[in-house]
C-alpha cells in the first residue's frame, strides 16, 4: 500500500510542477483585476489597455524588460507582490509611508488631485461639514479610504468600503451612496460615461493632506528588488526626457498629469 501512496504523491507533485513551470523569466506587472479607466481596463477581448498600460510598456521597452500584464485582486495586490506572484505593481498606487513599511516604490509617475462626486440633484461641496450625515463610498485600502476615515469619519453617516472603484460608482448610480471619493481622473472618466452623465456630477476637490495622500503614484516593488526599482526609475526618467511620456498622455488627457515636480522620497 505504501508504494501506491508514494506513486500518487509523486504523480501529484509532478503534475503540479509541470503545470506551474513557466518558460522565460519575464517581469510580471500586477494590475488590479478591475476596470479603472482611463488608467487600466480590459477591452472587449479581455486585453488590458489604458494610459498606465501604455506607460509601463514604454518603460519596459526603454529598459529592454520582458513585461507581462498580470491581473490580481486589488485587495490582495501587496501580498501578491511580497509572495512573488507579481514583480511590480502598476495600478495607480499612491506612494505612502504606511505602504513603505512593507514594500518599496519607484519615483512617482503621475499625481492628480482627489475629488468627490455625488448625485446631480443634491448640492454640496467637499468639506467635512458638507458630508455631514451622508453615506460616502471609497475603495478599500486606498489612500482615499484612509483620507475619508480621517477627515470625513467624524461627520459622515457611514463610510462604505468597496472591493473595486467600479462597484462604488455603481452603488452611487444606484442611489445607495450619497458621495464617492476617489482620484479625480478616474472619477472624471466615470462622469463622462453614459451612466455617470445621467446621475452624478463633480462636487469638488478635497483639501490636500500630503501625509495621507502622498506625493503621487509610483510603481510598487519588493524591498529587496533594488535592481528592478533602479531600472524602472531610469525608464521613467528616459521617457519623460524623450517625449514619449507626453505623447502617451496626450492621447488620454488634455493636461499634464505628472503634477508638480516634487522631489520624491
Amino acid at each position: 500500500m505504501k508504494t501506491v501512496l508514494k506513486t500518487f504523491a509523486a504523480a501529484l507533485l509532478l503534475g503540479v510542477a509541470a503545470m506551474g513551470v513557466a518558460k522565460a523569466d519575464p517581469v510580471k506587472i500586477g494590475v488590479a483585476a478591475e476596470p479603472y479607466p482611463p488608467f487600466t481596463s480590459p477591452d472587449a477581448s479581455g486585453k488590458w489597455v489604458g494610459w498606465e498600460i501604455e506607460f509601463i510598456d514604454a518603460v519596459c521597452a526603454e529598459e529592454k524588460l520582458d513585461c507581462v500584464i498580470t491581473p490580481v485582486a486589488w485587495d490582495g495586490i501587496i501580498p501578491a507582490l511580497t509572495t512573488k506572484k507579481i514583480d511590480l505593481i502598476v495600478s495607480s498606487m499612491s506612494i505612502t509611508d504606511e505602504r513603505k513599511k512593507t514594500i518599496d516604490f519607484s519615483d512617482k509617475y503621475y499625481n492628480t488631485p482627489t475629488a468627490i462626486i455625488g448625485p446631480k440633484d443634491q448640492k454640496f461641496g467637499a468639506t467635512p461639514e458638507d458630508l455631514k450625515g451622508k453615506v460616502l463610498g471609497v475603495q478599500v485600502s486606498t489612500t482615499h479610504a484612509v483620507y475619508a476615515k480621517k477627515h470625513f469619519g467624524p461627520t459622515a453617516a457611514e463610510i462604505k468600503e468597496y472591493q473595486t472603484q467600479d462597484e462604488a460608482n455603481q452603488d452611487l448610480a444606484a442611489g445607495r451612496l450619497d458621495a464617492v471619493q476617489a482620484d479625480s481622473i478616474a472619477l472624471d472618466a466615470f462622469l463622462k460615461s453614459d451612466q455617470g452623465k445621467a446621475c452624478c456630477d463633480l462636487k469638488g476637490m478635497v483639501a490636500p493632506d500630503l501625509e495621507v495622500l502622498g506625493p503621487g503614484v509610483g510603481a510598487g516593488v519588493r524591498k529587496e528588488d533594488t535592481a528592478l526599482k533602479e531600472k524602472i526609475n531610469a525608464g521613467i526618467k528616459a521617457i519623460r526626457a524623450n517625449g514619449k511620456y507626453e505623447e502617451i498622455s496626450k492621447k488620454y488627457f488634455d493636461f499634464d498629469i505628472y503634477g508638480a515636480d516634487t522631489q520624491s522620497n
Binding site: A33, E34, P42, D43, A44, G46, A80, Q170, S193, D194
Partner: peptide, 22 residues
C-alpha cells in the same frame, strides 16, 4: 474571482463593469 483569477465570474464582473449592464 475573489482572488482575482480570470474565470467566468470575474470575466462577468469585468464585462459588467465596462458596459455597466450589470
Amino acid at each position: 474571482a475573489v482572488v482575482g483569477f480570470y474565470e467566468l465570474a470575474l470575466a462577468t464582473r469585468q464585462a459588467a463593469g465596462v458596459t455597466k449592464a450589470y
